[in-house]
Amino acid sequence: MVEFRSVTKEYSNGTVALNDINLNLDKGEFAFIVGHSGSGKSTMLKLILKEEDPTAGEVFVNGYNVSALKRKEIPYLRRSLGVVFQDFRLLPNKTVYENVAFAMQITEALPREIRRQVPMSLALVGLSKKANVYPGQLSGGEQQRVALARALVNNPALLIADEPTGNLDPETSWEIMKLLSEVNYRGTTVIVATHEKNIVDSMKKRVIAIDKGVIVRDQEKGQYEDEVKNYKVYS
């Protein structure tokens, strides 16, 4: 589903964000990417979305060789994935319904398909009643759920969430994480970048830890921090 082959990313200012990363995610997996800010986890997501290109190595996503993708083909890669951001990124001048429908309109979907899919997606995140409200009138948690509905409306095989709970209080964060779990349960591969220890620890999913551009740990049913590593530090 997602594969990094010896990927190195060096920014033009000389910062090496990723250093020879190898990673493989299978279909249906749920993985956390954890690390401090500046560790390189955002860069990984940027490479998946082709917001940035790797300096060396190759990235494969959903069957696309992302590193070799032409500029004109980028929209089609992005349509094949759902993305959720920390700052929600909803269109302020469109209602909740229109925001979700927009993701289908850009694919030139049939209006009848849109009328069927959008309510389903809104029902999934529990926002059917807020369909005609503008994002500005919603709470942060609700806005994130709209963003999630939008990310899911095209039935993507892969969902990427960049700090999805970064702007939310703990309780709302849990709602979002539950939804992500549910989406994963239905068969969608989910990648979540976060630095929220509580969430990672209690979800017991695959954890990929990045530090200074290197994968320092890749663990099934992992924790946010590595006890072994901590042990070594203190011994």
Binding site: P75, R78, R79, L91, P92, F102, I106
Partner: peptide
């Protein structure tokens, strides 16, 4: 510009 940015992120083509 933010809207344009968002549209790009969810896969809208330049012409769209």
């Amino acid at each position: 510009r933010k809207e344009i940015n968002i549209m790009k992120y969810i896969g809208a083509t330049d012409w769209f």
